[in-house]
Nucleic acid binder design. Structure first.
Lengths: 148, 148
DNA sequence: CCATAGGGCACCGATTCGGTCCCATTTCGT
DNA sequence: ACGAAATGGGACCGAATCGGTGCCCTATGG
């Protein structure tokens, strides 16, 4: 249903939590799991993935944890989704790789889908982690206007 | 991966094919399946669904088939996706139904997701079947720019 | 040297997806 | 009136994906 997985959803929540704290100090998976009201194994799994994908920097050993790899304004929703689910492509057809579509005759669909895909991508690229982290207090007026 | 199912993909192709023909005359599932290079059972299943959802009008009996229920300019990509997959919602959180999110504390995510969701929705709502059907010949310059 | 915390991965049950098939019903043509 | 041609509505099945847990390893601070 054009929907992202729950794990991606959780990733957005976790990233938001991390972004909302002091950028320099690490936060443990246990802490974050509690605050996000997620089971520890789940949170751990997701944080590991986000680390491997370069969105988080991890500190191993006792008193370890995670912190953002970049500033909260440099990370977008699209980045997080890509880290969790791979390239953003609505269909096989709409991926950037020039994979040839098997539906030759009827493939104006392809070109249009590519366009749709781009619109979605842009929308996701436009929202930064900083906005999400700040949304709790401010950024309420930013919601009143439509996007596209 | 924020992707729609293959059946939805097929639905877009089939709808495009139907829209590209004379609006008044019906086309059989067999015909359409051939032109879309899809197995007949698949095409049939999808066409039935689109009919039930009100996007197509069916003519039963011999020499039967399908035609558009509305003008090609009135039907959008979003309509087709909704017919195939239900309401467009990136996450449980972002649906329009005011379903309460379980992640209370961290739920600025909710509001932001709602915004993302809306952007996606708007993008899909903006593309009509008429555009897709016409894209084969024109609308090529709209593609010349890279995607992401 | 040990408790703490992340790294990696295998694994499992449940759901969804892609696809096929069957049978009932409708309708045109002869 | 009858039969071929089409749609209508499901049931059904194998395969892939999803959500979630657990285990064992390595790193590190006290």
């Amino acid at each position: 249903m054009i929907r992202l997985t729950k794990q991606t959803d959780y990733a957005l929540v976790l990233m938001t939590l991390i972004a909302a704290s002091e950028p320099s100090e690490v936060q443990s998976a246990t802490e974050l799991a509690e605050r996000a009201r997620l089971p520890l194994p789940m949170a751990g799994k997701i944080l590991k993935l986000l680390g491997r994908e370069g969105l988080l920097v991890s500190q191993r050993g006792a008193a370890g944890g995670y912190r953002l790899a970049q500033g909260a304004s440099e990370t977008t929703v699209a980045d997080i989704i890509r880290a969790m689910e791979g390239p953003i492509a609505l269909t096989d057809c709409s991926s950037d790789s020039g994979a040839v579509c098997s539906l030759e005759e009827s493939c104006p669909t392809c070109s249009t889908l590519r366009r749709v895909n781009r619109a979605v991508n842009d929308a996701l690229e436009a929202i930064t982690l900083a906005e999400m982290a700040g949304a709790k207090h401010e950024a309420r007026e930013a919601l009143s206007e439509p996007i596209a």
